[in-house]
Amino acid sequence: MNPAPVRLPAGVLTALRPPSEWLDSPWLAVGSGILLLVAAAGAVRALRRRRRRAGWVAGVLLAALLTAATTVNAVVGYVPTVQAARFALTGDLDPGGGTVTSFRLGSVPLGVAPSRTYVYLPPGYAAHPGRRYPVVFLLPGSPGRSTDWFGAGDAARTLDVLIARGLLPPVVVVSPDQDAGGTDTECLDVPGGPRWETYLYSDLVPRVDALYRTVPRAASRVLAGMSAGGFCALDQGLRHRGTWGPVVALEPFGDPGSSFRDALGAEGFAAVSPSSYLPGLTVPAPVPVFLGTGAEAGERPGVDALTAQLRAKGWPVLRRDVPGEGHTWVAAREDLPYGLVLAARYLPR
């Protein structure tokens, strides 16, 4: 069953575009490259004349670092705006329609290092103390941080716009750090390492429901993520239907990666790999799923296979590819509003 496509009005698309996107512009990378050439030419002249060589060499190194950074950023879009850079560095976000706050949580018994989880509270949250809200969990990629979705993903702007235009009900949005302590957990219980899957259900979800006025039932929880977080959203969202409602998986993989194959063994690996267990999976009701990726992404064939497996079960599955993009934050930013609007169709009214 294919749901109707999500179509965003031109005015919404304009509002979703950050006012300044120059930090991930390819022209900044070009300018940095020109600066590098100028610095290199100056260094060559200085070396020939034996004058102020140290200063010119330092200039070349700085220009090279700037060129490398701006080139990578132009490709992956990790720092699209000055506000995104500020949030990544400080965790502070200029207030918009909603507000972003945070809390710190971990679990010594489960081997999960304490880390900061960021939370978006929708407009009107403080003014309506009796109201409860659906909740969206947004998981970053790996390596990644809990700041990523509100920095690189520009999620607060997306949420403000969709809520203001009536395309998404007011929601609480939670972005944790599933790599707390530097371990790629893939949201699983890592053998000999952090038991993040157990932590998610025994600690994190209950803490969110205790701290914020969420609707504490599965149908009102959306699980979303990109890259490794996209795998997490798909795998956890499918295997734990008692906790999650709609699933939004951006740039996902069908399994947790080769490093887990040896650690979990063949049977254990298949048990946490949607590409393996989907054909035999039974759930109480159809699962709404949004799958998004870049049209040029290396994982696209795997996403094609996942799409076919999910649709074969008769579930409402919507797929969207971002033209010209690979496995990038640009693609994740562009797909997020479509995924959230689809998920909103299936939230209880």
Score class of each variant (00 low, 15 high):
Arg239Gln: 13
Ala210His: 11
Thr99Met: 03
Ser273Ile: 03
Leu318His: 02
Asp203Phe: 07
Gly257Ala: 04
Leu105Phe: 07
Ile34Arg: 10
Gly230Asn: 10
Arg349Thr: 14
Phe103Ser: 11
Arg241Thr: 06
Asp177Lys: 00
Leu250Tyr: 03
Pro114Thr: 13
Ala228Asp: 08
Pro316Asn: 11
Pro5Glu: 07
Arg333Asp: 09
Arg131Met: 11
Asp148Glu: 13
Arg7Asp: 15
Glu334Gly: 04
Trp315Glu: 03
Leu47Asn: 00
Val72Arg: 14
Gly268Ala: 14
Leu281Phe: 05
Pro18Trp: 01
Trp149Pro: 01
Pro140Lys: 10
Leu23Glu: 02
Leu200His: 09
Gly324Phe: 06
Leu200Val: 03
Asp154Tyr: 00
Arg217Cys: 07
Thr67Lys: 00
Gly230Ile: 05
Pro252Lys: 06
Trp196His: 14
Leu200Thr: 05
Val190Ala: 12
Arg221Glu: 08
Arg311His: 11
Trp315His: 02
Pro140Phe: 01
Glu186Cys: 14
Val173Ile: 08
Pro18Asp: 11
Val119Ala: 07
Val57Phe: 15
Gly181Arg: 09
Val12Lys: 00
Ser115Ile: 08
Gln236Asp: 13
Gly268Leu: 09
Asp24Ile: 01
Leu167His: 13
Phe87His: 06
Pro194Arg: 02
Leu204Trp: 00
Ala266Phe: 10
Arg52Ile: 00
Thr117Gln: 04
Ala308His: 06
Trp149Gly: 06
Ala343Arg: 14
Gly314Tyr: 09
Val72His: 14
Pro348Arg: 12
Leu278Glu: 06
Thr67His: 05
Gly55Met: 06
Gly98Phe: 09
Val119Gln: 05
Arg195Lys: 15
Thr90Tyr: 14
Pro246Val: 02
Val82Gln: 10
Arg195Glu: 13
Ala295Gln: 11
Gly182Thr: 13
Thr70Arg: 08
Glu197Thr: 14
Glu325Asn: 00
Pro114Tyr: 12
Pro288Ala: 10
Ala40Thr: 15
Thr198Cys: 11
Leu306Trp: 13
Tyr201Leu: 12
Ala285Phe: 12
Ala271Val: 10
Gly298Asn: 06
Leu278Trp: 04
Tyr212Phe: 15
Gly302Tyr: 12
Val44Pro: 01
Leu238Thr: 01
Val248Cys: 07
Thr147Phe: 02
Pro286Ser: 08
Arg213Thr: 11
